[in-house]
Each structure stands twice: as C-alpha cells, then as structure tokens.
Amino acid sequence: MADHSADWALPCGRTEAELLDVLTDSAPPELAEHVRTCPHCQAELAELKAVWAPVRRTAQIPVEPPHGLVERALMTVRGVRGGLGASPVELAQEGGALRIHPQAVVLLTRQLCAEILARHPGVHLRGCVGDADEVQVDLAVRYLLPASLAERIQQDLAADLRDVLGAGAPTVWVRIADVEPPG
C-alpha cells in the first residue's frame, strides 16, 4: 500500500489531495474525467477507498447524544437568557445606585463558581440558572467525593456573591446533578 502521509505526486502529476476530492465528489469535472482514464489514479483511488471505507461506515452510524446533554444545554441557555422579568440588583453607591441586570448576576455566579471549583478537582459545573433573587447551580462530582462538598461549595459561593453584591446577593442553591465514574 502507498504512503498516504505526504501529498506526493503520482506519475501522471496528480496528488493524493486531488484524489481525495474525487473520493468525496468535490473534484472539478476535468479531474474526474482524468481519473476515469488514468491507471495511476485508478490504482491510488482504489487504495484510498479501502483506507477510507471504515471511516465512511463509521460516519454513517447514528450517534445518540450523551444522556442529559440537551437538557444541560437548554438549562445553560435559560440561565443566561432567563430572568428577563426580574428586577435588577441595586447596589447603593456614592452618588446613586448601581443596577445589575439579573442575567449579569447569573453570569457572575457562574464565574465565581468556576473559580471555586478550580480548587476542587473532580467537581464540574453542569448548569447555572436563576435571576437576581435566586440561583441554582448543578454540579457533577466524581464518584467517592463526599456529598458534603456541595454544601461547602454552596457556602463559599454565597459568601463570594455577598462580597461582590452585598445585601443584593441572590439565594444560592447547589445540588449534585450527576455522579461521574472514578478518574
């Protein structure tokens, strides 16, 4: 079998890349016509077909998304887009009040949670939804990590939000939504 690691030219001057275009039906008509009559291209194309046959078969196998992927994606979108009707958080400042949109509160919560989780290997953020009044954080934890870790993360997250937002910090709920196999 030929070496397919480099784009070398056949005796007729055609390259493997051009033959791959033929194989994927994206070659210009003049190349397709040349390949039909060229013994060098036909031989190389036969080898390429044999090499690519398992890839083509695998590509045609339907793949189901992992369990819960769609729900997690929608929860994330709702978390960022949600809270449209909620009142903003107002922080009193010198000269007036700073209004923080509920979506910004959710994004802030997500960022602070990511910083906290960086200190806890084996714990991953699965979702963060809510508004300026209440935020729910879903975690995935590696098997055998203590369940009390969620409570500790909830306390740390609530404290960090209070540091940033003061009395306007939302109530935080942290739950373990998934358990992953040991690493």
Rank of each mutant, 00 (worst) to 15 (best):
P146C: 03
L125N: 06
C128R: 04
Q103K: 05
A104G: 00
L117K: 10
R119K: 15
H124V: 13
P102R: 00
I100A: 01
R110D: 11
L98H: 06
L107Y: 01
G122M: 10
G95K: 10
G96R: 08
Q136L: 06
A147V: 15
R119E: 15
G130E: 08
V137A: 02
L144M: 09
Q136G: 00
E115D: 10
L149R: 13
C113S: 10
A132T: 03
R99E: 11
G127R: 05
A147D: 09
H124Y: 13
Q93Y: 02
L98A: 13
A147R: 13
I100Y: 01
A140M: 12
L107F: 02
L108W: 00
H120L: 12
H124M: 12
L125S: 10
R126W: 10
L107K: 05
I116N: 05
A132H: 05
R126L: 15
G95D: 11
A104P: 00
Q93S: 15
H124S: 13
L98T: 15
Q93L: 12
P102S: 02
Q136C: 02
C128K: 01
P121E: 11
G122H: 07
L107T: 06
V137N: 03
V129Y: 03
D131G: 14
L98V: 14
G95P: 09
G127N: 09
G130C: 05
V135G: 03
R119H: 12
R126T: 10
V106P: 05
H124P: 03
E94R: 12
L108T: 06
Q111Y: 07
A132Q: 01
Y143G: 04
R126C: 12
D138K: 02
Y143E: 11
V123I: 15
A118F: 11
L144I: 09
V137F: 03
Y143F: 06
I116F: 05
A104I: 02
S148V: 15
Q103W: 03
D131M: 09
S148G: 14
A104K: 00
A104N: 00
G96Q: 07
Q93H: 12
P146A: 13
T109W: 03
R142S: 08
Q111K: 02
L107W: 05
A132G: 05
Q136D: 06
A118D: 13
R142T: 14
R99Y: 01
H120A: 11
G95N: 10
R142A: 11
V123Y: 01
L117F: 10
E115G: 14
G130M: 05
V135L: 10
E115L: 11
D133R: 11
Q103G: 09
L117G: 14
G127P: 04
C113G: 08
D133H: 10
D131N: 15
R110P: 02
A97Q: 09
V106A: 08
R99V: 00
L98Q: 12
V106E: 07
R126S: 07
A97R: 14
L98I: 12
H124A: 14
G122R: 02
E115T: 04
G127F: 02
Q93I: 15
L145W: 07
L144C: 04
V129Q: 15
R110Y: 01
V135M: 03
V106L: 08
I116V: 10
Q93M: 13
V137G: 04
C128I: 08
Q111F: 05
Q103F: 00
G95A: 12
L108K: 04
V129S: 09
A147C: 07
R119N: 14
G95Y: 08
A118P: 06
Y143K: 07
Q93C: 14
I116K: 04
R126N: 04
P102H: 06
